[in-house]
Simulated scan of single mutants.
Amino acid sequence: MRNPICILEFPSNLGLKEPCAGREPGVKKLPDFLRKHHFHSSLNPSSILNLAPPPYSMSLDEISGVRNAGQISEYAEEQSLILERVLSENNFPIVIGGDCSILIGNSLALKKTGEFALFFLDGHTDFMWPSLSHTGGAAGMDLAIVTGYGHNKLTDISGEKPYFKEQNVWCVGNRDYEEWYVKAIADSGINYVDLNLLRQKGIGKCISDFLQMVRDKNLNGFWIHIDVDVLNDHIMPAVDSRQPDGLEYTEFNEMLTLLLSDTKAIGLEITILDPDLDPLGIYTKNFVANFCGTVNSIQNLHEQ
């Protein structure tokens, strides 16, 4: 991570269902909320770009079985054009969501640019398709979509299916251990490291194995997906699907440091933190301090 930081704001909430009737998911407010709590100023980016999403609805697309599939696909294409340009200018994009469906557009841009790995850091696998989903929301299917599972409306935008090869994906940190839920990803070619295994194996070993894979396959680099629900519920409860346990900030910061210190890191995205669930910013301030502190420490080391 040695290139100038560019912040991209992709505040889509199209991949989530309503938290209650008539109320939109609040994740679309995340870029403004992070700015209020000094995320942007702490990172001192070279530029900040914003892409407004299509209007939210609860519409279920009958063809794909995914809510707002047409709008998500449209938004993904617009995202990809912006991200492609940012990468071509040798910037390091930090993308602020939004929900996890923003991974689709980011993945499309990467596929057009080269062959990349994905380090998917999430408290859930998000490896489902409509027949498994209870909500029809793309935010719970994004990892499946970007590896080619589901209707072509989302999996084959611009004829680029799959955006990531399964074998180039590491899904790390899941702590939803229901048998039916885990079976889908366990039967895939994705490298799956749940929270228990991560702690048994050790963070250093997990990241080392991932980086070695990137080099052994001579990939162009890797993208990092961060759903903040990977964090322990007591330090980050401002998410739509809460669960006990999760990474402490010492663990999260260690992972981030090891990943971003590698020259193959190409960019990252942050998703799911809902300002409506943290009105005083208590948890958001702590996240900003840890994330920005870690990123700035790495940047400072490279500048020495």
Rank of each mutant, 00 (worst) to 15 (best):
G65C: 05
S88N: 06
S107Q: 01
S64Y: 06
L108A: 10
I102M: 08
A76G: 07
G114C: 04
A109R: 08
I82V: 04
G65S: 11
F116I: 12
R85C: 07
G97Q: 03
G114P: 12
L83E: 06
S73N: 07
K112F: 13
V66H: 11
I63M: 13
V95W: 05
Q79V: 02
I82E: 09
G98F: 06
I104C: 02
E78G: 01
I63L: 13
E89D: 10
E89S: 09
S73W: 00
K111H: 02
E115L: 13
E115I: 14
R67G: 02
S73C: 08
I104R: 04
L108N: 04
D99R: 15
L83P: 06
E77D: 05
Y75R: 03
C100T: 12
V66E: 15
Q79M: 09
E77L: 10
L87A: 08
P93M: 06
A76M: 05
G97R: 08
G98D: 11
V95M: 06
I104E: 12
S80A: 13
K111M: 03
S107G: 11
R85N: 12
L83K: 06
P93Y: 11
T113V: 14
E77Q: 09
F116G: 14
L110I: 11
V86Q: 07
I96L: 06
K111Y: 00
S88M: 12
L81F: 03
S64A: 07
Q79K: 00
T113L: 14
A76V: 07
I104H: 07
P93C: 06
S88I: 08
N106Y: 04
S107H: 01
S101H: 11
N91A: 11
I72V: 06
S88F: 14
E89I: 07
S88Q: 04
S101F: 08
G97F: 06
E115A: 10
L110F: 05
L110H: 08
L83H: 07
G65I: 03
I72D: 03
V86S: 08
V95S: 07
Q71G: 04
A109V: 05
I63S: 12
G114V: 02
L81I: 09
L87D: 01
N106A: 01
I94P: 09
F92H: 03
E78I: 01
I63P: 00
I82W: 15
L81N: 10
K112H: 12
I82M: 04
C100N: 15
V95T: 12
N68F: 10
S107F: 00
N90S: 14
D99F: 12
F116K: 08
R85Q: 07
R67M: 02
E78D: 01
I82H: 15
G70K: 09
S64Q: 02
S107I: 04
S73Y: 00
V95D: 12
L110T: 08
Y75W: 11
G105C: 14
S80H: 11
G97C: 01
